[in-house]
Design a protein around this nucleic acid. Structure first.
Lengths: 344, 344
DNA sequence: CTGAAAGCGCTAACAC
DNA sequence: GTGTTAGCGCTTTCAG
């Protein structure tokens, strides 16, 4: 196995192969302008020597940067670590490296990270996580990305739609409808929603789905008690407390992501409220522990790893005239946390 | 807020500040050889313009690379995503970017990723995750890292000791002893261990701790039934099945990490074996969901995020004459999955 | 189809 | 202290 020598340069490969620097460069980049035979020879020599291009020199000279920047809210949130995992897989297949930055669910900070990545001249930028309702914030991000693309950068996002770039779009609304329909089928009529931060589009979309399901079944949206809180486990706890206090008649709680659902379950357990006998609980995302909670969590599965893969694959293709969209699909996974509404 | 112009160069800053390129460079790098006053002025101008250095040019010219490469087994494993989170935090504070690569718990692949990072000329390399018993594998990694350090690179590892570099060392053995003592105190005498892949040092160290606890209490290590499997949730399932089949007299199962413990719990639940009444279960790591499982998991808490922070901080310091070590400390967190051994 | 040479933006010797 | 200049290793015109 060839070891990359500490200071092996393209010039060494060129010399060894008996060609000029330019030819060697062309051959290795797979550009044309070199006879196929010569090119093959150069690549052969390069491989023998274990040559790896210096990405700094390459990028500085105008070649494409081989690193992809990924912005997530928080990498230790399973939703994002699964997406990141998919991105890293594809990157590894392509010999790319992935740089991860945290936005911390703060639009200002997201913008700062975005600019930093651009300043770092990454070749590809991926943003995962909900967008913001605030059009000003989205517009700034949009401008920044547009400039980046004008300079040849490639962009794709997961879970946002207002950015004018290629996007992997989770089935948020449809998933919400599936959840709503499921609960209605089970006879629930007083449903509470543990919703995340109001400013997030993901929250709005999923909620809209639940509302739509009620409407489709001829029920008034008034049957729904919506409580907003953080889009996290602790937010779920807070929301659950508030729901129990303000809407004690509820027979089901829809948490708009699994993190919140975990918080909800934890409150119900400590209050000794039986799930699902007295209260049904539904989550969203199907992070990998959802199946291992007790009771196991009914939730909407989104293929997070796949979403990460798809995002990078989109970004790797040449840019289309108009932004592409890939819907993720979704599956309602019915487990033990939902059951028939308790009789009256 | 200044926007980094698409093509703002150091020369622009220098010109605007009325100094030479060299002075500007020195001022911004905080190197001396510039009067404090001038330096301040240059920095001021730079900030006004929103200048951000091109890292490719900077690195190519011989400056230190501002990116840190982090190798983890798998980013969507909570153990690693929490460590990564700590690393990213510190990196953000320092204006560094973090590149993440997967080793997939495969020594060959780890080596490949390591070489790739070196070839990419990152400035700092961090490796998280258990080392391997195989001295050949460790020696190769060691050589590679030594070469990297000779070239001015900085290295730190989390959870490995045989690499001759700065290390954050989890309290694996002491944690194992704490687990063993806890179970013995509860009266357990037939203890099974769901251990991870045999080749991992983390597995060996934690197991050694459990064995030591038995020894210290005057019990023979024969009281322990050790079953090896993957160091994952599914590995935990497999191990649990095997333990129930081959060692049905066990009253407690020690899983050597939380992922395995989750698998163990899931098998016990589906077999309707009450925890902890009939079987106690202990994990290791205290990933954040451990508290939300049902029953909540007794486990050894390791400060993963902190470990990630510490690792990068170590690597950021100038290299010491001999490798530094930072012990993590640990806490036995007793929750609901452990209880007194069932009578006879 | 191939080679020579001019940079990419920055740092670090080396002069002044 | 400050400025000048020669590269870092690569890509990319531009000649041949």
């Amino acid at each position: 196995m060839p070891r990359p020598g500490p200071r092996l340069r393209l010039a060494d490969v060129a010399e060894r192969a008996g060609v000029s620097l330019a030819t060697a460069s062309r051959a290795l980049a797979g550009r044309d302008g070199v006879s196929e035979e010569l090119a093959r020879h150069v690549r052969q020599v390069s491989r023998e020597l274990g040559y790896v291009a210096n990405p700094y020199a390459r990028t500085l000279a105008g070649g494409a940067s081989s690193t992809v920047g990924l912005i997530v809210h928080q990498i230790d949130d399973p939703y994002f670590s699964e997406i990141a995992s998919g991105v890293i897989e594809v990157a590894a297949e392509q010999g790319l490296l992935v740089q991860i930055a945290h936005s911390g669910r703060d639009p200002e900070n997201e913008l700062r990270q975005l600019r930093h990545l651009i300043a770092q001249r990454v070749g590809i930028i991926l943003i995962a996580g909900s967008g913001y309702d605030d059009p000003r914030v989205e517009a700034q991000a949009r401008d920044e990305l547009a400039g980046f693309q004008r300079g040849g950068g490639r962009v794709a996002v997961v879970g946002r739609h207002a950015l004018g770039v290629d996007a992997v779009v989770p089935d948020n609304e449809a998933g919400g409808r599936a959840v709503g329909a499921h609960l209605l089928n089970l006879g629930h009529r007083r449903i509470a929603v543990a919703a995340g931060t109001p400013g997030l589009t993901t929250v709005a979309d999923r909620l809209a789905g639940v509302v739509a399901a009620l409407g489709a079944a001829g029920h008034s949206p008034d049957a729904l008690s919506v409580v907003h809180s953080d889009f996290t486990r602790d937010g779920g706890r807070v929301a659950a407390e508030r729901i129990l206090a303000a809407h004690p008649e509820s027979t089901a709680i829809v948490a708009l992501n699994d993190a919140m659902a975990i918080g909800v379950l934890s409150v119900l357990r400590s209050r000794r409220i039986p799930v699902p006998e007295r209260m049904s609980v539904v989550g969203f995302d199907d992070v990998s522990v959802a199946a291992d909670l007790a009771p196991s969590l009914t939730t909407v599965r989104l293929p997070m790893t796949e979403m990460g893969r798809t995002a990078l694959q989109l970004a790797l293709k040449p840019r289309a005239t108009r932004p592409r969209r890939r819907s993720t699909g979704h599956t309602l996974v019915v487990r033990d946390s939902t059951g028939p509404a308790p009789a009256g």
